[in-house]
Simulated scan of single mutants.
Amino acid sequence: MNGVELFLLGRALMKLGEDALPEPPGGADRYAGSTRLVLIVASDIAAHPDTAISEIVTRTSLPQSQVSAAVARLKEAGSVLTAPDPSDRRRVLVRQADEVSERVAQVRATGIDQALVAAFGTDDAERLLEVKAALDVLARHLMGTGPQGITGR
């Protein structure tokens, strides 16, 4: 595999992930670009609790305005909490909410089988298990997921 193939694989995996997510509430467009940005920011916050907006901007390379908008959406949904930075009251720190909202729980509980079946055009159980095992290996090495991996539902 070369860099181009890895990039294309990453894009294919993102498409699979988008297809696996449950429909957005209220008949919204299916995961428009702004929603993808919210998912990127949410995953960064999960990996870096009590982080400042400027730090999220640096890690994600997203514009500050988009990060701030994503944090506002996550806060409105009850997914994150914000608080002033005790060492610099001008900064706001962001962390995941202690309790998971109903929507976040729904998104996290959604499996990937239907998206894989649609992508492969088959529901061959052996093939699905092989692909999910490979995804678990990638997740373990690239994301540090626990023993159940990303598909352990």
Rank of each mutant, 00 (worst) to 15 (best):
E23F: 05
D44E: 15
R91N: 15
R73M: 11
E130F: 10
L116P: 00
R108W: 06
G78H: 09
L37F: 06
D136G: 10
A42H: 07
I40F: 08
S87N: 12
K75W: 01
G17F: 10
A105G: 01
D124G: 03
A83V: 03
L39H: 07
S68H: 10
A46H: 12
S101N: 08
A69D: 10
K75M: 02
V104C: 04
V71N: 09
A97E: 07
Q66E: 14
A47G: 10
L62G: 02
Y31E: 05
L128A: 06
V67M: 12
P25I: 03
I40N: 05
S65H: 08
S34T: 07
R140K: 11
V100G: 00
L16W: 02
Y31D: 11
S43L: 09
T122F: 05
L16T: 07
R91S: 09
T82F: 01
T122C: 03
R36Q: 10
P63S: 13
A77S: 13
G27P: 03
R36V: 00
V137L: 15
H141R: 15
R140P: 00
K75H: 12
V57H: 05
P22D: 11
L128M: 14
R127E: 10
R90W: 02
Q96K: 12
D88V: 03
I40L: 15
R95G: 02
I112T: 11
L129N: 08
I45W: 03
A118N: 13
L81N: 08
M14R: 05
R95C: 03
A52I: 05
